[in-house]
Structures are given as structure tokens and as C-alpha cells.
Amino acid sequence: MTRIPHPYLDHPATLAFAHRGGAADGIENTAEAFRRAAAAGYRYFETDVHTTADGHLVAFHDTTLDRVTDARGRIAALPWSEVRRARVAGREPLALFEELLEEFPAARWNVDLKAESALVPLVELIRRTAAWDRVCVGSFSEARVARAMKLAGPRLATSYGVRGVLGLRLGSYGIPAAVRSGAVCAQVPETQGGIRVVDRRFVRAAHRRGLQVHVWTVNDADRMARLLDLGVDGIMTDHLETLRTVLTDRGVWV
């Protein structure tokens, strides 16, 4: 396991991320989901952000409300006054990311920038609340994360996007590839399109660069164990009890 001189990663053991607060039962990215994760002992939470038509930063994964709520429509096209009436799984309200930061002051957040419109509001929120040590910003778009880092400055913790991960993967095979400096971690799927992303070579290449490796989204105990044996630094899961049990059995649940 490698350590980065950034307070976001200051944790004495494997990082256990509650993916969307623990999405297994369908109330993902709600305050109630994160409350349960906190009660289960989780300190690291993963979420996503979009902005409403009037600029409110909402913790939500999808572009539209359709899949997981009792409402319909694109979040970016609706005001917060309408979005706030939607209920996840028919019962839990959506949350503003600022509300989550306030309710869980001890939590650290991995935030996926799902839309370009969320970039400036997120960076401004982190700056206004002085949450530099509590938030790591990521996105599939490497360029989007780079823009966030340029806007925020070196205090912002970021992870690699797809291009950065590809560069790291090529570098693990000795193939020269440019990667963005300043990231603190690579957050990756175990496999992508049937191709293995995370193996011992990849983990070692990341660690040589001083990067942690966080793997998403892993819900099977055997897969969790294999990844830990490879030396990954963090795992994101929908199944909170499964990951906690695996880490407890290994003596690394903190």
C-alpha cells in the first residue's frame, strides 16, 4: 500500500468506500443511505453530482430522475423546487451535496463530476466550506478533472479519468505515455469490456508514481479478497456488510 501526502488519504488501513452510500437496496445517493453507511462504520463515501436548472448541486448519479425516483425529467432542465419533490425508491428525497457535507462532517467524499455544469459549483463549494481535505474529485473525463484542478489549485485531491488510467496501464507495460501530474489516485474497474485493468503490474506501476489504486464497484467477497492480495488501496462497494466482513477478517477494518 502506498501513501500520498494529501490529507484526504490519511487513513491507517484499506479505504472502504460506501458506493452511493451503499446502493444495494435501491436508496442510493440519499441522506438515509449515507446515514446507514456511517452507522456501519464507513468513513469514505462515494457520490455523484449534477446541477439543476437553477444551479443547485445535487448528489445523484443519473442524468434523469427516471430510473430510481418516482419523477421524470432531466435534472439539468428542472429547478431544485421540482427536483426536491422526487423520491428515490418512492420514499427518500434527493440531497444537495452541501447538505451532505454539513450532516457528515467526519466523512470523506469521492465525488464523480457527472456534468460540466457541476464543475464550478463543486469547486466553489469546496472552497467556501474549506473541504479540501474531505473531497476527492473524479470523472471519466480527464479533461474535466484537469479543469477542476486548474480552477481549484493544488489543494484539490483528484483521481485519474479514462485517459489517465490508460496512460498508467500503458506505462505498466513499459510503453511511454503521458499522464497528468497532481492526481492522488487511480480509480478503476477491475475489468473493462472483458479486459483486465487491475493486476499486480498495474498496482505496482501506480504505486511507483505515488498513486493509490481504488477499485469500483466490487460486491463479491472473493473478488474483494483477490484485489486486496494484489495490494489495492481501496475498494468501493454497494454491499457494505460484505466489504466490512472481508476487511474485519483480515484485521484491516478501522
Rank of each mutant, 00 (worst) to 15 (best):
I4P: 06
P5F: 10
H6T: 09
A18E: 06
H19Q: 06
R20M: 06
E32A: 15
A33C: 01
A37F: 01
A37H: 05
A40L: 14
A40M: 10
G41I: 05
Y42G: 08
T47S: 03
V49D: 01
V58Y: 06
A59R: 03
D62L: 03
D62Y: 07
L65R: 00
D66E: 15
D70R: 07
I75L: 15
I75D: 00
A76I: 10
A89W: 05
A89F: 07
A95L: 09
L96S: 02
E98M: 06
E103I: 13
A106K: 13
R108F: 10
W109F: 15
N110M: 12
V111K: 08
D112P: 04
A118C: 11
L119Q: 11
P121M: 09
V123I: 13
R128I: 06
V135P: 07
V135L: 12
V137I: 08
V145Y: 00
A148M: 08
M149Y: 13
A152C: 06
G153W: 08
L156R: 02
G161R: 12
S172A: 14
Y173N: 06
I175R: 03
P176D: 14
A178M: 15
V188S: 02
V188L: 04
V188P: 01
T191G: 09
V197K: 00
R201Q: 11
V203P: 00
R204N: 05
L211Y: 01
V213E: 00
H214Q: 11
V215D: 00
D220G: 14
D249C: 04
G251E: 12
